[in-house]
Computed example of a mutant assay.
Amino acid sequence: MTDRRLEIDAISKRYGETVALREMTFDVRAGELFGFVGSNGAGKTTTMRIALGVLAADAGSVRWAGQPVTLETRRLIGYMPEERGLYPKMKVGEQLTYLARLHGLPAATARRSADAWAERLGVAGRRDDEVQKLSLGNQQRVQLAAALVHDPEILVLDEPFSGLDPVAVDVMSEVLREKAAQGVPVVFSSHQLDLVQRLCDRVGIVRAGRMVACGTVDELRAGGSVRLVVDAPQAPPGWADALPGVRRLEHTGTRTELELGDGADDQAVLRAALTTGPVHEFARRRPSLTELFRSVVTEEAAK
């Protein structure tokens, strides 16, 4: 069986003295939702544009199913740019049909696909409207329809959830899950890390043009710092501040959240809490993807 993976292999890109990508490496597997996250300017869009052939890499390669990506391969990709790439004065239905035909679909098939995706993404009633007359959220829906209308074998989406209301986010999430269930590799960037955590099979965190962490959400969260939530009703706010390797993150009401550094003893924390009175809760908590992202980016920036 063909290994249907999109592979980004040691991609590097420089603009004069500015290094945009430093041996960027990851893969997106068949049927996988891959979240590509990083701060603005980290290199996410540059990576996607190189995968699409919009930009040329200085070094490295992009492969699909084990073979270098060619013009023909790129016809198989559904791409959604962060900045909307639609013709503003063209009607929605005509535009989707036109883009489907550019990817090789026969005229009748292109029209049926355009109508089906307009219906699915909630813009069927706007098919005869110019794109520029749509709200930003509806333009985003049309942009996704444009990425899907030719039934792509790979999906590369740059900030697909930007500007969407909660209902549209749910519709788009469902569509991406369905495409992944059909065996399509799906990679998307997003600053909405709670959404990435909920949707993605794996996540790659990017900083300064290179991949600094990659794995399943559970793997990444398990590698984060140990946190404790302690509910000690009679404990004052600074009750754990003197404990070695323990940092207080938050104290709200009777609950304190602590971060344990290397060598810190959770049992010592429990004993200290008990000296203040009863303890109603003492539990470990894994950091969220948002907290982990902040930690990874901060650590890398300090290096």
Rank of each mutant, 00 (worst) to 15 (best):
T2G: 11
R4K: 07
E7I: 04
E17L: 06
V19R: 02
L21D: 09
T25A: 15
F26T: 09
D27C: 07
G38H: 01
S39K: 05
S39I: 06
N40T: 13
T45E: 07
T46G: 10
T47S: 11
M48L: 13
A51F: 01
A51K: 00
L52Y: 01
G53Y: 09
G53S: 08
V54R: 08
A56H: 15
A65R: 10
V69A: 07
L71W: 14
E72A: 09
E72D: 07
T73P: 02
R74L: 05
R75H: 09
Y79E: 03
R84G: 05
K89P: 07
K91Y: 11
G93H: 12
Q95G: 02
L96T: 00
L96N: 00
Y98M: 14
A100H: 04
G104I: 10
T109H: 02
D115K: 04
D115N: 12
E119L: 13
R120D: 15
L121N: 02
G122V: 03
G122F: 01
G122C: 03
R126S: 13
D128N: 09
V131D: 05
Q132F: 14
V142K: 04
Q143N: 14
Q143E: 13
Q143H: 06
V149L: 07
V156T: 07
L157S: 03
F161L: 12
D165I: 07
V167W: 05
S173R: 10
V175F: 15
E178Y: 06
G183H: 01
V186Q: 02
S189V: 05
H191D: 06
V196L: 03
I205M: 05
V206D: 03
V206W: 05
R210L: 06
A213I: 03
V217W: 01
D218R: 11
L220W: 04
L220S: 05
L220H: 01
S225D: 12
V226T: 04
V229I: 10
V230P: 01
A235M: 12
A235L: 13
A242K: 01
G245F: 12
V246M: 13
V246K: 09
L249W: 12
E250Q: 13
H251G: 13
T256M: 06
G261F: 12
G261Q: 13
A268F: 06
V269T: 00
L274Q: 14
T275W: 01
V279W: 08
H280V: 08
E281F: 06
F282C: 02
A283L: 12
R284K: 04
R286D: 11
P287C: 09
P287W: 09
S288G: 15
T290G: 14
T290V: 10
V296D: 02
K303H: 12
